[in-house]
């Protein structure tokens, strides 16, 4: 697990990149939270707080304002007390799942990719969400489209490591 040394490496773990066939938020969150708990990345209360928080404060990001052909993403997360690490967990969804719009919760749209943020140190380093948004808005268009379509966890990990924070 402790195989990384650079800043962008430390935000991703090759064993914490997932492809999910879940068809609902509850199913998806349960599946991923169990895997993260098994790696001690999160605390047992993470799942309940993740689900409740997403209902109260949705995290869907409408990517059509960045590019019309990008799929929408979401950045589910909890308060820092429920996680043990500072990481981004990429999750490709084989079936799009509806999420509420972070900046207009009355609106819902299908989401195809998650950047789940585990952040136990919000003030410590450069803002994780800002780094995600910079990646999404500055990465080469065609390469990012191919990335979103990838179903290979190793390819997802490698692409993120190569293109994040640049």
């Amino acid at each position: 697990m402790n195989m990384t040394s650079t800043t962008q490496d430390s935000l991703f773990s090759p064993e914490a990149v997932y492809i999910s066939s879940a068809t609902s938020q509850d199913e998806l969150f349960s599946e991923i939270a169990a895997k993260l708990l098994a790696r001690d990345f999160v605390k047992p209360a993470f799942l309940d707080n993740l689900m409740q928080r997403e209902k109260d404060y949705p995290t869907g990001v409408d990517m059509s304002v960045v590019s019309a052909d990008y799929p929408n993403i979401a950045i589910p997360h909890t308060e820092g007390e429920f996680v043990n690490v500072r990481k981004i967990v990429p999750i490709k969804l084989l079936t799009p799942i509806d999420f509420g719009n972070m900046i207009d919760p009355s609106q819902k749209f299908p989401v195809s990719f998650l950047f789940m943020i585990l952040n136990n140190d919000p003030e410590g380093q450069a803002n994780v969400l800002a780094q995600i948004m910079d990646f999404l808005t500055t990465t080469n268009h065609n390469q990012l489209l191919a990335f979103f379509k990838s179903k290979d966890t190793n390819a997802v990990y490698q692409f993120l490591n190569s293109n994040f924070n640049k």
């Binding site: 404060y57 950045i75 820092g80 943020i117 952040n119 919000p122 803002n127 969400l129």
Partner: peptide, 14 residues
């Protein structure tokens, strides 16, 4: 302000 007070609100603050 944001739901968790962790990511979004800190980005807005900065």
């Amino acid at each position: 302000a944001c739901g968790a007070g962790v990511n979004s609100s800190h980005q807005i603050k900065d």
